[in-house]
């Protein structure tokens, strides 16, 4: 199939829409890394920067929705074009949620800075955040390359993030049982870990969208589920 439309303005509109999405993806990646870094380094300025930065991500989502609505109204995209527009709208919503989670991490970092440090946990969280950021980076690459196999490969890596979250969940439970004075900090850290785990889920949802955009099918094989904390009893 030839890849350019007879109407070159249509191609330019689609390009512009995807450029906005990639810009949004870049900001979301940065927010994940900065949020984790500010937590580990107890860096209040950086946390503040992440909280402020979320506004730009939200604004981009609004802009993408507006441009996508315009494109649907004016160009009536069908088949692969329509799938592309639908996926841009959905992926931008995923990225917006990722931005929100990063912002929430930064908020909790400000609170945590007033509490005693929890040895090891911020480092583990940062490793987990780095893994999710890599996944996001790779899934956006798969989007640009229109590579459904690469997207599915990223999707499978979410199980590792879930594993890391399970380990942290158990660790926090142990800390809290050891000394109830740890509860406040551990609850915040747990929510942060959960936020990152949820980011991973949004990355897998983006991977699904890529698969759908390229093939017109939804990936039907059930994803490996790694987060078992919601179905496990409390004893560790």
């Amino acid at each position: 199939m030839n890849n350019t439309h007879i109407s070159s303005a249509f191609d330019r509109d689609l390009e512009a829409l995807q450029a906005l999405l990639m810009k949004m993806g870049g900001l979301a990646e940065e927010a994940i890394l900065d949020a984790a870094k500010s937590l580990e380094g107890r860096d209040e300025d950086l946390a503040q920067k992440v909280r402020e930065g979320d506004k730009a991500i939200d604004a981009l989502e609004d802009q993408i929705n507006e441009e996508a609505a315009k494109l649907v109204a004016l160009r009536a995209p069908i088949a692969s074009d329509m799938r592309l527009v639908l996926s841009v709208i959905k992926i931008s919503a995923n990225l917006e949620r990722i931005g929100d989670y990063a912002k929430n991490m930064a908020k909790r970092t400000v609170v945590l800075n007033q509490l005693p440090t929890q040895d090891g946990a911020p480092q583990s969280i940062r490793r987990m955040a780095r893994e999710v950021q890599h996944m996001l980076h790779d899934v956006l690459d798969a989007y640009i390359q229109r590579d459904p196999a690469a997207a599915l490969e990223v999707r499978d890596r979410d199980a590792d993030v879930d594993q890391m979250y399970n380990a942290l969940f158990r660790e926090f439970l142990t800390f809290m049982m050891e000394d109830p004075r740890n509860i406040t900090a551990c609850m915040h850290l747990h929510f942060i870990a959960k936020n990152i785990e949820r980011m991973g889920d949004h990355v897998t949802s983006i991977a699904d969208q890529i698969y759908y955009t390229v093939t017109g099918q939804t990936p039907d094989d059930a994803r490996r589920k790694g987060d078992i904390t919601s179905v496990s009893p409390l004893d560790v």
Binding site: N3, F10, A79, R83
Partner: peptide, 19 residues
């Protein structure tokens, strides 16, 4: 046909690409 045509020629035509 309009969401996921099987033949690339169909896709090219309905999406307004030069087939």
């Amino acid at each position: 046909i309009f969401t996921n045509p099987k033949d690339p020629k169909t896709e090219s035509y309905i999406t307004g690409r030069i087939g």
